[in-house]
Design a binder for these strands. Sequence first.
RNA 1: CGGGACGUGGCGCAGUCUGGUAGCGCACUACACUGGGGGUGUAGGGGCCGUAGGUUCGAAUCCUAUCGUCCCGACCA
Length: 513
Amino acid sequence: MSNIRHALNVKRADDFAQWYQEVISAADLAEESGVRGCMVIKPWGYGIWERIQRLLDDRIKNTGHDNCYFPIFIPLANFEREAEHVDGFAKEMAVVTHHRLIQDQKGKLVPDPAAKLEEPLVVRPTSETIIGDAMARWVQSWRDLPLKTNQWANVVRWEMRTRMFLRTSEFLWQEGHTAHADAAEAKEHTLRMLEVYRACAEEDLAMPVIAGEKPENERFPGAVETWSIEAMMQDGKALQAGTSHYLGTNFAEASGIRYQDPEGSQQLCHTTSWGVSTRMIGGVIMTHGDDDGLRVPPTIAPRQVVILPMLRGKEGDDALIEYCQSLHDQLAKQSAFGERLRVLLDTRPGKAAAKRWDYVRKGAPVIIEVGGRDMDNDVVSLLRRDQMWAENGKPDFQTPTREEAANGMQELLYAIQANLFQQAKERRDANIRTDITDIEGLKEHFADTAVHPGWVQVAWSKPTGADLDAVVETLKDMKLTVRNVPMDDTPTTGACIFTGAPAVERIYVAKAY
RNA sequence: CGGGACGUGGCGCAGUCUGGUAGCGCACUACACUGGGGGUGUAGGGGCCGUAGGUUCGAAUCCUAUCGUCCCGACCA
């Protein structure tokens, strides 16, 4: 046990925040950019994002959406139209005020006063307003509805405190925007996209989530309802991994999105918006990472299988590479999860044993090392990243024949995917308490640092306004937040843990990212 | 944005208090040895010490400003 020499210097149990950063650098996912709050996403990290994009984009297309692209700059006046929206975002906006630079007396480049924009442009923090404008043009008749669009884009929110992938000033995301004829259809669509996110998180990212409705205080600025998927990280904190909003007619009114109904009268559209971002990658790290680095689920791994020939820089290398190449080709012809296998044969000079640890840290699901002796016996040495340590504290290499390795790969990848999900789900379920019925109990539970705090689901009366503010304040003192009310929540009885009034539903309470 | 810490070769650090012009480990390069495993040895390459001013004969070291990073808080779809 303790004689295992892990690939990272920091252990999750010792310092989770530092471990998180260590994984990002050790797995070569991203690095600092020198620009406050902005990061450089490196090939392995971006490769994971591309995988998520591909899989989610398919799901979005399959639910009837087409991709568009809207400008990164939004006229200030345009942004001003929805009051709550402005309140929510005004304090974190990047603003463009000039369109030219000139050199001052000292030779420094400064904005040219003569090139000041008459109306400043804001860098989009989200695109409801500018897409609303387009929708107002595109929608005339009830026959134009529903209008279902999506865009993949970057957005900017001037964050006070940033953390790689979890909260950066600039981040990449997908934002869907739809317009519907009535509330029922729009609400139904909001939930449909929430379900798409749930499926994407659980099936593609192997990250179990709770899908549910956000309480009033956590709503998106300008939304009537906000729904989310919440994932539990290994330190017990909750991560909001995706949101879906029913916007009512708020943005339709602001942008004039109207249609003529079959009877000939003008009606306001009901709109929705929903998004997931590169934050998902932070979720993958904190869901699947271990003391040896990242573990990437096969569905989103840029490379699912890495083959490392044990080269010696001598004659014999060529035959070994040929042997590995044939394994590579055999694997690359196969499929799993409805796609061709992604296999890397790494023939760069260097020791296989040394390179192995790079891929362990990156979390490649399957690592295959092949030496001369393997070749002679027509076998390979195969390491499963999701269960890589043997009893003796050494990497647990299996030695199937080349045929067995090739023929069993699809099944192996399915098994790894399932195992990662299972591990995460068991850990989450083991860390949810549902038996706490008073504030004191809540305090005790979260004060005891010896116990993994996780989440607590409590009965509550769904307070609003000032009553809700009081609840939020109470929780804040304990560094807790209300997360969401799960969709499959059954009617509850008893008293609200906060107000004492009759409870109407059960909500998750947790520390959060 | 408030409090704290920090910024020295790719990474991790020492040197800063007591100014004299840069060092260690890992990584990297070459060669040799080794050869089922993150190996060993020898020899090398790489840094105007975040940036800009200032004090001084002389600044990584002292002063000022500024940029960036981390932690705590406030804030946050």
